[in-house]
Simulated assay, not measured.
Amino acid sequence: MIEKGEISASQLGKMMYLAIIPTAILTSPSITFKLAKQDLWISPIWALSGLIAVYVALRLHNMYPGQNIAQACERILGRFPGKMMGFIFPFFYLYVNGIVVREYGEFVVGTFLLNTPLIVVSGSMVLVCAIAVRGGVEIVGRYADLFLPAFITLFLLIIVPILPDLRVSNMLPVMGEGIMPSIAGSFVLQTWFSEWITTSFLLPFVADQKKATKSILISLLAVILTLVVSNLATLLLLGEITGNFTYPFLILARYINLADFFTHLEALFMAIWVLGAFVKICVFFYVTVLGAAQWMNLSDYRPIVFPLGFILTLFSIWVAPNLQELTHAISTSVTFSMLTVLVVIPVLLFSIAWVQKQFTR
Score class of each variant (00 low, 15 high):
2 I>P: 00
4 K>S: 12
5 G>L: 00
10 S>H: 15
11 Q>W: 07
17 Y>I: 00
21 I>S: 00
23 T>A: 15
28 S>E: 12
32 T>G: 08
32 T>V: 11
35 L>T: 12
39 D>Y: 03
39 D>C: 09
42 I>Y: 11
43 S>N: 03
49 S>D: 01
51 L>D: 06
51 L>R: 03
52 I>F: 05
56 V>Y: 00
59 R>M: 12
63 M>W: 15
65 P>Y: 01
74 E>T: 12
74 E>L: 08
78 G>M: 05
79 R>K: 14
79 R>E: 14
81 P>E: 03
81 P>V: 06
82 G>T: 08
87 F>I: 10
88 I>P: 06
93 Y>I: 10
99 I>G: 04
99 I>R: 02
99 I>P: 06
102 R>M: 03
104 Y>A: 03
105 G>D: 01
110 G>Q: 08
111 T>N: 02
112 F>Q: 13
119 I>T: 15
120 V>I: 15
121 V>S: 02
121 V>E: 03
122 S>R: 05
124 S>R: 02
125 M>E: 00
126 V>R: 00
129 C>V: 02
130 A>E: 02
131 I>D: 01
133 V>W: 04
137 V>N: 12
138 E>F: 10
140 V>T: 05
141 G>F: 08
141 G>I: 00
142 R>K: 02
146 L>G: 13
153 T>S: 13
153 T>P: 03
164 P>A: 13
168 V>N: 04
169 S>F: 12
174 V>Q: 10
176 G>W: 05
181 P>N: 09
182 S>R: 15
183 I>Q: 10
184 A>E: 13
187 F>W: 15
189 L>G: 12
196 W>G: 13
200 S>T: 02
200 S>F: 11
201 F>W: 09
202 L>E: 06
205 F>N: 10
206 V>C: 11
206 V>I: 14
206 V>G: 09
207 A>T: 15
209 Q>D: 13
210 K>C: 11
211 K>H: 14
212 A>G: 02
213 T>G: 15
214 K>C: 06
215 S>V: 12
217 L>I: 09
222 A>P: 12
231 N>R: 03
232 L>D: 07
234 T>R: 12
236 L>K: 09
236 L>H: 08
237 L>A: 07
237 L>K: 06
237 L>G: 07
238 L>N: 02
238 L>H: 08
240 E>P: 05
242 T>Y: 05
243 G>Y: 01
246 T>N: 12
247 Y>Q: 00
247 Y>L: 04
247 Y>I: 02
249 F>R: 10
249 F>I: 06
253 A>K: 07
255 Y>A: 14
256 I>N: 09
257 N>W: 01
257 N>V: 03
271 A>E: 09
274 V>T: 06
275 L>P: 02
277 A>R: 09
280 K>V: 01
281 I>D: 04
282 C>R: 11
283 V>P: 00
286 Y>H: 00
286 Y>M: 07
289 V>F: 05
290 L>K: 10
294 Q>E: 11
298 L>H: 01
299 S>D: 07
299 S>L: 01
301 Y>W: 01
305 V>K: 00
308 L>C: 07
309 G>A: 11
311 I>K: 07
311 I>L: 08
314 L>G: 05
315 F>H: 07
316 S>Y: 03
316 S>N: 02
317 I>R: 05
318 W>F: 14
321 P>E: 15
324 Q>M: 12
331 S>C: 13
333 S>M: 14
334 V>P: 01
334 V>M: 08
345 I>F: 04
347 V>I: 04
349 L>A: 10
356 Q>I: 11
356 Q>D: 10
359 F>N: 03
360 T>W: 00
